[in-house]
Design a protein around this nucleic acid. Sequence first.
DNA 1: ACTGACGTACTTGTATGGTAGCCGACCGAC
DNA 2: GTCGGTCGGCTACCATACAAGTACGTCAGT
Lengths: 252, 252
Amino acid sequence: MAPAEGLHAARSRGRNTRQLVHEVLRSRIVGLELAPGSAVSENDLAAELGVSRTPVRESLILLADEGLVDIYPQMGTFISRIRERDVASAQFIREALECAALREAVEKVTARDVAELRALLTAQEEADRHSDMQGFFQLDEDFHARLMAVSGHASAWPVVSQAKAQLDRARRLSLPMTQQMSLLIGQHREVVDLLEEGDLDRADGALRSHLRLVFSDVEKIRAKHPELFSDEDAPLRPRRDSARRTASRGDG
Amino acid sequence: MAPAEGLHAARSRGRNTRQLVHEVLRSRIVGLELAPGSAVSENDLAAELGVSRTPVRESLILLADEGLVDIYPQMGTFISRIRERDVASAQFIREALECAALREAVEKVTARDVAELRALLTAQEEADRHSDMQGFFQLDEDFHARLMAVSGHASAWPVVSQAKAQLDRARRLSLPMTQQMSLLIGQHREVVDLLEEGDLDRADGALRSHLRLVFSDVEKIRAKHPELFSDEDAPLRPRRDSARRTASRGDG
DNA sequence: ACTGACGTACTTGTATGGTAGCCGACCGAC
DNA sequence: GTCGGTCGGCTACCATACAAGTACGTCAGT
C-alpha cells in the first residue's frame, strides 16, 4: 500500500515525470521485479505511482521500442518474454561493438584509464566478498561502459546497454552467481592486463570469450526457467489473468 | 493545400496512427524535407496531419530517442542538427556491426543469397541510369539490410538503420551523387564478389573502405553546408522563428 | 536612443474523458 | 454434455482540457 509516493517529490531535478517513470519501470523489468509474461496496465501503474496515465503510457511506448514490453492494442501490455532471437541478436551486437571498441582502445589507452578500470575491479571484488549481486551488476555495467569510453566511443554505449538489458534480465536468475562472480572478475582483469600490454588480439579474444560465457549462462538459465522465455511457436496469445478482481472483491 | 489528409484513410492495416505519424515524420527528417535546426510544433503537425496532439507527441518522443529531434520542454521541438559526435558514433556502430556480420556471412552465404544481392545491384544500376537518387537510397538501404540478413542477424538491422539515418541525412545533399553512385555500386559489387569467393579479409576490407567513403562524404558536406551541423559550442539556444504567423497569414 | 519591466502568445507537460475492440464468462439451444 | 450467442469488463488508442513555463514584442522610464 501507498508504495512509490515519493516519485513526485524527487522531481526536483531536471527530469520530468515521464523520464522518472521510465527509469523506475526499466529498473523493475531488468531487475525482474516485473516478471516476463506478466501483464501491466496503464491504469494500474498510474494509480500505483500516483501519476496520470499519460507519462506512464509514454514510458511504456519507449520500453516497447527497447523490446522490454509488448503492447497489444485493445488487449494489454505485457512484460516481454525473453526471445531466443533477441538474445542472439543482443549478444551479436554487444560482441561486435565492445570488441571493435577494444581494438581501438589499445591505441588510445592511458595510464589513467587503466587505473580507473582497476579501481572498478577492486570494487567488484568488494561486492563479491559481500555477496552483493545488485552492486556487482552495477559495477559490471560501469566496467564495460568505462572500457568503451577508453576508445572514445562512449556515445555508442547506450546501444550496447540496450542490448545488454536483454541478457541481464536472464542473468539475474543465475543463482550460483556467487561462484561465477570471481570468475567474471578474473576475466575482467585479464582484459585490462592485455589492454595495458597492448596485446590487441589476445585482449580481443579475452573479452570475446568473457562475453560468450555470459551468453552460455543465458542458455543454461533457459533450461532452468523456461517460463521466462518465449516458445517462438505461440507467442501471439498472451493470456489475460482472469481471476483477479474476484479475489479482491471478496463476496457478499 | 489540404496536404496529408490521406493519413487516416491508409489506416486500414494493423498500424495505428502513432506508427503512421512516426513513419511520415521520420521520412521527412531523413529526406531533409524538414531541415536540421528548424522548429516543429506538436500543434502545427497535428493540424497538418489531421490528427490530435497525442500521436504526434508520442512520435516525437520516439524520434527524440533516435536522436532525430531535440525536445526542449516549454521551449519547443527542433529537428536536430547533425552533431560531429553523433556522426562519428554512427559510423563506428555501422562499421562494427556490418563488418562483424559480413565475417559471419562468409560462412553461411548461399547461392540464393548471392543471386538476390546481385539483383539489387542491377536495380541500383538502373536507378543510376535514371538519376533516381531517391530510389538509389532505398536500394542502398535494401542492399545493406540484405547483406546483414545473410549472416542471420537481420534482427540487428534496426540498430544499424538508426545509425545510418544520421549519416544519410547529410548524404542526401551530396549533389555530385550522380558521379558517386556508380562508384558506390562498384564497391557493392566488389563486396558481393569477395563474399561469394569466401575471401573473408578482403571482403571485410572492401566493405570497410566503402563505409569509410560514405563517412568522408559527410565531412565534405560539412564544409559545404555548415548550417546543418551543430557548432558544439552554443547548441543550447535554439531560436524560435518569431515572424511565422505574419507570413503564413498573408491571405489574398 | 537605450534599458528594463511587463504582458501576450506560444511551447511542452500532465490530467482526464470518450471510443473501438478484444477476452472470457455466462447462458440458452441442441 | 457440447456448442454458439451474448454481455460485462477490461484494454490501449485518440482527443481534449488544463497547467507550468519560456521567449519575444511592447512600452514606460531614463
